[in-house]
Amino acid sequence: MASNVYRELLIQNINKLIQHYESSESIFRDNNNKMYHSGEFGEYREYAVEELLSLCLPQNFGVTRGFIITRDNLISTQCDLIIYDKGSCPRLVDSSYKKFIPVEAVVAIGEVKSQIRTSLEMSEILDKMARNKALKSLSSTTRITKKVYAPDEDNGRSFDSSYFRHDAIFSFVICKSFSPMPENGFDYSEDIDMSNKHNFIASLNSGHCSYFASPTWSLGYGTHNYHYPHTKREAHEQEFKAPIQDEVPLAIGLLVSALYNHCKVATLVDFDPVEYIATNIRR
């Protein structure tokens, strides 16, 4: 039995997102059907997705667009969506209103696209996202402020985003449609670690991609629609699911559920301003 209130609010926001996709494409195309002001077109879509996700996330998490920074002076490429723990760090904004989020607070990142027409285009998007996700490869001595125990990983030890799924950033793509997934899944560059691969690909029209977790670790049975690319360094196969007709598209319903659950169990680590500010202080 579903909640009518929650379901209707979700349907309203999904319909608003669909309208944003459709109206933005007409607003930002000229008489020759060529796209102009592509930056504003992207922002138009991103605002609609932000609004949808803000409805579905725990209230202590924020959604913004911008850049991830680290204490080692690394900076991500621009992220369409950054989901972060509002209580653990500042949101830094420069004079041009660019936003910067310390990696310690980041729990998820997303890319918002319209139509992804080829598997090569998808692979390029996933590669970019994986390199941003890799910025949370923090030291094992990183100070942990919250960790939810996962018995199948025995993750009560030190921080390790390459091994423990809740330590890593959750990454996703949301789009209007995407090209068919190749038989062996979307490709990554050879230097991309399995832990930094995407968690979920959701579309309004084409279905979704997640993973199939083999039964070797999951209590003797396989798990479909699994949201993590590996468990204990055991890689899971990418899996495509066709859309199911409903007012709440299956892909969107699964994505918001997966994001909510990841936010609830994501490992939170300590943000220390001194490590970002000082260049000559030794602890």
Rank of each mutant, 00 (worst) to 15 (best):
A2K: 14
Y6D: 15
L9W: 09
Q12A: 15
Q12E: 15
N13L: 08
N13R: 07
I14S: 08
K16C: 03
L17F: 02
I18R: 02
I18Q: 00
Q19P: 00
Q19T: 13
S24T: 09
I27R: 13
F28M: 13
F28G: 13
R29C: 12
D30H: 05
N33G: 06
M35F: 10
M35E: 11
S38M: 08
E50R: 12
L53V: 09
L55A: 08
P58L: 04
F61K: 10
T64S: 10
R65K: 13
R71T: 05
R71D: 07
N73W: 00
S76D: 02
S76M: 01
T77Q: 07
D80L: 02
I83P: 07
I83K: 03
C89E: 06
P90F: 01
R91Y: 07
D94Y: 05
K99G: 00
F100V: 03
I101Q: 09
V103G: 03
A108L: 12
I109A: 07
G110R: 01
S114Q: 01
Q115Y: 06
T118Q: 09
S119R: 13
E121Y: 03
E124P: 03
D127N: 15
D127P: 06
S137E: 14
L138V: 10
T145V: 07
K147C: 13
K147M: 06
G156K: 01
S158D: 15
D160Q: 09
S161E: 13
F164Y: 15
F164M: 12
R165I: 14
H166S: 15
F170W: 13
I174C: 05
K176E: 05
F178K: 07
S179V: 00
S179T: 05
S179E: 05
N184G: 14
D187Y: 09
Y188F: 12
S189W: 00
M194V: 15
S195C: 14
S195G: 13
N196L: 04
K197N: 12
K197T: 15
H198D: 11
N199W: 12
S203G: 02
L204W: 04
G207Q: 11
G207T: 10
S210L: 02
A213T: 04
A213D: 08
P215L: 04
L219P: 01
H227R: 08
H230P: 11
T231Q: 02
K232F: 06
K232P: 00
H236S: 12
E237N: 09
A242I: 07
P243G: 10
I244S: 13
D246V: 03
V248P: 09
A251I: 08
A258W: 05
A258V: 04
Y260V: 03
L268S: 13
D270W: 01
D270T: 04
P273R: 01
N280M: 01
R282E: 07
R283H: 10
R283W: 05
R283M: 03
